[in-house]
């Protein structure tokens, strides 16, 4: 693995693209947070601000036809996989033009055109689905990868063990991406998993190769996930990743919640000092891969795209109420 400096020197375009993807996620969600209190995004909405690095890195590595699935907190994964921003915002606004036609909201995103196969809200719920997609890849002998994002709580679900076991047993092309942000809603890891456990080490015990990484370092995540994806693509079986990171805002909703008593302000501040977006931007500036005016124009372009997407979402029509009974079954 290259040092960040060397990586930037060798791959300046990739490093810039990582920053751009992170910023697109960050700025989109900041705008969601700002507008959420208007009461027009009427669905549970989970922001990943502070956690953008992993989804940006993995999304950039995956090919368009590689499958990806996510959780309730999937704006980052969806956007980085190439999911359509306008359709995502329209979905959060409950509009007909939404990626799920207004049936799913923020927690149920999909964009088939980039093989983002779905995000769902039940903890661990998409893990076996990703393994099943991997089984289909093996049966059809295509060289795709199936990637699933989940959090630290998902490894407490029985279905996680069942799914990893089957993926290892059948040597399926799955990339398990665990973003460990230390909290399941308000419940800290300490009340959920034994002290001293490292999730990635536990998974090795199932026979699944595993890697740990800094979830706030996009370049590290990119390099580590990159070599794993190639391994998975070659048919050598699944790989598991644990990336430690931190969600800045409340579990669900637009606000900060460091004052309500389940976590300390100092903890938040220490993570905020390691802001993945700012860290990469500073590094790129330091290595002269980016200039101040480059930052300015990157931000301007992203903000313009986001502004247009919000306008689209806000102004597009709601689905007709009499569509409610459609698509219960496929084909009638």
């Amino acid at each position: 693995m290259d040092t960040e400096t060397n990586f930037i020197k060798k791959n300046p375009k990739t490093a810039l693209e990582l920053l751009r993807r992170m910023k697109k996620i960050r700025f989109t969600e900041e705008q969601i947070a700002e507008k959420y209190p208007e009461g027009r995004m009427r669905c549970p909405t989970h922001l990943c601000i502070g956690q953008e690095a992993v989804s940006a890195a993995v999304g950039l590595l995956l090919r368009r036809n590689d499958f990806a699935l996510g959780t309730h907190r999937s704006h980052g994964a969806y956007l980085s996989k190439g999911g359509d921003l306008k359709k995502m915002l329209a979905e959060i606004y409950g509009k007909a033009a939404g990626c799920s036609k207004g049936r799913g909201g923020s927690m149920h995103l999909t964009d088939r055109s980039v093989s983002f196969m779905g995000s769902t809200s039940l903890v661990g719920g998409t893990i076996p689905v990703a393994v099943g997609l991997a089984l289909s890849i093996k049966l059809r002998k295509t060289r795709q990868v199936s990637c699933v994002f989940f959090g630290d709580a998902a490894v407490e679900e029985g279905v996680f063990y069942e799914s990893v076991n089957f993926a290892v047993l059948k040597k399926l092309p799955v990339l398990f991406i665990c973003e460990n942000n230390f909290y399941s809603v308000y419940s800290p890891l300490a009340v959920r998993q034994p002290k001293g456990r490292e999730i990635y080490k536990m998974v090795r015990g199932f026979g699944c190769p595993s890697v740990r990484g800094d979830g706030n370092n996009a370049i590290e995540a990119y390099q580590k996930a990159g070599s794993a994806i190639e391994r998975v693509r070659k048919g050598k079986g699944p790989v598991f990743f644990e990336f430690k990171t931190y969600r800045w805002r409340e579990h669900c909703g637009p606000y900060y919640d460091n004052d309500i008593g389940y976590r300390a302000e100092e903890e938040f501040i220490s993570w905020k000092k390691r802001d993945p977006v700012l860290l990469l931007q500073q590094k790129l500036l330091k290595e002269s891969a980016l200039t101040d005016s480059g930052v300015e124009s990157m931000d301007k372009n992203i903000l313009k795209e986001i502004k247009e997407a919000f306008e689209f979402a806000e102004n597009s029509p709601f689905p007709s109420e009499n569509e409610i009974g459609k698509n219960i079954y496929c084909g009638g």
Partner: peptide
């Protein structure tokens, strides 16, 4: 693994 194997079936069927 009844639950995961059902999810595996769902995933495979999506493709």
């Amino acid at each position: 693994s009844e639950n995961a194997m059902t999810g595996v079936g769902i995933g495979a069927s999506l493709n």
